Amino acid sequence: MNNILSYLKNKHLIWQGKALHEPGEGGLSGYPELDAELEGGLPGQGVIDVHSDIGIGELRLFLPYLLNRQEQQQRLLVIIAPPLLINGEMLAQMGIDLSLVLLISPDDQQQALWAAEQCLKSDCCHTVLSWLQNLEIHQIKRLQLAAKQSNAVQFIFRSQLTQGLSLPVTLAMSLSAQPKGLEVKINKRIGSWVHRNIHVNMQPHWPALQLTESHNNHNNVIPFPKRHAS
């Protein structure tokens, strides 16, 4: 039995429930409620699997964390195969140095995977963002190894229902839209197995994107001015 457990652990197919994060491993997300649930913040290395619909604020959620990593490390932020155009003005306004941002547009997912692994192996990147769909365990293991060797983080954004396979990632979460931000469900995290859904309030970072209370009602009928017929 011990040999079987050791084999599964070495293959990263099981996690130890009592495993602890290494000191200084994580980084603050910019949202106290999320940092509290993650016991200090997002991982400082490894693969983060994000299940989310497109365009609900999934990238904005991680911008404070990415800004903090750029300020600390002065390495590249790489964006691979985004499904929508990336707003450079928004990144600059947030404080991201655009001279340290690399955008890659591969022809297919195989090229996207290859580009992500090469960027991680180069030791020139602090974070790689990739939009991918169906993935295999061996592909995630290669990205994990490359990320840990270069002390980098690989984000993988996937749609909600693309795959039911549990992958050996450092952190897995699902996002859903809420009136003032996002609801975050932690699906997997090394060192923990009991999680709750977190309501992340994004209003402090982007107040202009939120409706005021006076406009936040169910009456969406706009009255038109009356005009007498001549």
Rank of each mutant, 00 (worst) to 15 (best):
N87R: 11
W193E: 07
T170N: 04
L132M: 09
F224L: 13
G181T: 07
V101I: 02
K148E: 13
R142D: 01
S130C: 11
N187D: 15
M173K: 02
Q163W: 08
D49R: 05
R189P: 09
T162D: 14
V101E: 02
N10I: 00
G164P: 00
E37K: 12
P82E: 01
D107S: 11
P207S: 00
K121G: 08
L76P: 00
I79Y: 04
L103R: 10
Q70C: 03
G164N: 10
D97T: 01
L59Q: 12
S122D: 09
A147P: 05
L182E: 12
G40W: 12
I140K: 04
A112Q: 09
M173L: 15
Q74L: 07
H195I: 07
E37Q: 13
Q163C: 06
A146C: 14
R69K: 02
Q109Y: 13
E183N: 14
I48A: 06
V221T: 14
A208C: 09
V184D: 11
Q73C: 06
D107N: 11
I198E: 09
N201P: 07
F224D: 09
D53S: 14
R142K: 14
T127E: 03
Y65M: 06
N219L: 13
G44H: 05
Q178P: 06
I156N: 00
S176D: 15
I190G: 09
W193P: 01
F157S: 07
L102R: 05
Q70I: 04
A172I: 02
M173H: 04
F157H: 11
L102K: 05
